[in-house]
Each structure stands twice: as structure tokens, then as C-alpha cells.
Design a protein around this nucleic acid. Structure first.
Lengths: 149, 149
DNA sequence: TTTTCTGCAAACGGTTTGCATCGCT
DNA sequence: AGCGATGCAAACCGTTTGCAGAAAA
């Protein structure tokens, strides 16, 4: 159960299991099941349906923890906006549509060893990497020339 | 001369060559020569020294054009902040330090054809990609355990 | 009972916009 | 002369913070 994993992540970060965090975990579990990606605002509105007084700040504070714990993936778009999704594994690559923002995770045969070796030569320790392909999906290309984005 | 290239880019975008844009081009030429990366705020302060009334909005409007023209590269950090640098060529990869933010361009043998083929399978048109390696540089690792970032 | 967490509201910081004026062409 | 570009100030929007009260441990 994903909700359990999330409780554990909070615990690992030394955070109490509270009602708001339970609501977050439950909703994230649903989102993980559907594979959907979401903005914090989306998520906040969902949570407000469970509890009309759910605070925005609470959400931001909790999400930060989950991102740091590697449970949530924060995707940054070319315009600087963010969307999130629950991670399946810890290395993955994205292909995202610059117009409608739908994205898929893709399987790339990327040589992480090569990156490690480049880092080593440059005397960096490698702590992470992001690889995002930006493109336009078929649906958006077929729409009658709407202004991009 | 890089400043010339920038004039051309403005022209290609159908924008007049004005005094503020000349100042921007000149300053970017200097920055390109030194290889430095910069924030818009850095750049704005530089420009204010040339002209104390230089408007922020003007800078944002012009930079947007240059980014779209592929002359400037906008780097998005893990925390969502941005820095820029003048591009040397149109495909490059970054290795950036999560602590001090210095970065180097690295030469990676990345198979762009592979990406193109993945996009094709997924029925996306490939319009760009970002690949950034995050790590910690030697200097930051050697400092006495300062709090990261 | 102690400590952490919460919701609220206000602050923040980077970016964008409306508008009257200025200045390229 | 005409239209685009500018500078300014205000608006915006996602995010963070300060705080007093509420809820876990």
C-alpha cells in the first residue's frame, strides 16, 4: 500500500502522523494508482473537499518532505511551473508535451556510468540528474494550430 | 562579434534595435566572453549602471526573445530559480553544483537519435531536451560541512 | 505536559501587465 | 506620422513565514 510507504517517509523525516498528513497520503495513493500528475493547487483543492479548512501552507510543508524523501517527483517545465507525480522508481526520464503538458515516462538507455565518469573527471560528486525531452504530442499537433502553450 | 549576433536575433524576431536592447547586447557580449552565468537581477543591476532608469520589465521582455531565439540558455535549478548564460552551440549539457551553483558545460556522448526514436514511438515531435547533472563540487565538499545550498 | 503541527493571514520575490509617453523607422 | 518599445507602478501568483491555538506523543 502506497499510503503506508508515505507514512514511513514522514516518520523517517521525524514528522508526526497527523490528520492532514493522513489525508495527503491517502490522496497521493489514489493519484499513484491512476498514474496522474498534478499541480499543488490541484491537490490542495482535492484535499479541501475532505477538509474545507485544509491549509495551503500545510500542503507545501508536507510536499517538501516527500520530495526530499524521493517519494514525489517534481517536474519543472520550461516556463518554470511545477507539477508532481508519485515516483515508481528512482531513475526515470520524462517526455513532456510543451503544449498540453501531458507527459509519459520513457525508458532510455542512458549511460549513467558515463555521467559518473564525467563527474569524476570534473571532481564533482554526482547526486542526481534530470533528463526531460520536450516535444509536442500528436493530439496537440493535430489541433488546428492553437497558439502553443 | 556576439553583440552583432544578438542584434540579428532581435531583428529576426521583428524587434527594433533600441538603446536598451543595445545595452543588453553589449553586456551579454561581455558575459559571453567571460563565460559567466548570471541571474536576471545581476544583469539588471549591471544595466542600471549604464542607465539608472533601465526598467526591469524591458529586460524581462528582451530576455524572453533571446531565450526563444536560442541565444540564451535558461537553467532551472532544483529549487525553481533561474540563471542564464549565453549559448555557444545549441546542444549542451550541464553539470551544476547544488551548493554553490557554479556549473560547467560537459561533453556527453548522449544518443540524441535514441531520443528521437523514443519520441517517434510515442508519437511526439522532439523540440528540445534538458539534461542536467546535479552534484557537489570539490570546493564545496571540502568546506567544513556548511549547510547545503 | 511538552513539543510539534496546523490554519490563517500577511509577507515575499520573481515575473507580468496596463498605460501614458518616448523614440525608431 | 505611425507604430512599436519603454519605464513605471501596480498587479499577479506560487510559495514561505510568523504566530497563536490545537493536537500528537
Amino acid at each position: 500500500m502506497i499510503a503506508q510507504t508515505i507514512y514511513t517517509a514522514f516518520d523517517r523525516a521525524g514528522q508526526r502522523i497527523t490528520r492532514p498528513r493522513r489525508l495527503i497520503a491517502d490522496r497521493l495513493a489514489e493519484l499513484a494508482a491512476s498514474g496522474a500528475d498534478f499541480s499543488l493547487d490541484d491537490l490542495w483543492h482535492d484535499l479541501r473537499e475532505q477538509d474545507p479548512h485544509f491549509g495551503r501552507a500545510t500542503l507545501y510543508r508536507s510536499i517538501e518532505v516527500l520530495v526530499n524523501q524521493g517519494l514525489l517527483d517534481r517536474i519543472t517545465y520550461a516556463d518554470g511551473s511545477h507539477r508532481y507525480h508519485v515516483c515508481h522508481d528512482n531513475t526515470h526520464y520524462h517526455l513532456t508535451c510543451v503544449q498540453c503538458r501531458r507527459f509519459v515516462e520513457v525508458d532510455l538507455d542512458v549511460s549513467v556510468e558515463q555521467f559518473a565518469s564525467v563527474c569524476h573527471q570534473t571532481n564533482f560528486s554526482l547526486e542526481g540528474l534530470t533528463l526531460t525531452l520536450f516535444g509536442r504530442c500528436a493530439r496537440c499537433r493535430n489541433e488546428q494550430g492553437d497558439a502553443p502553450r
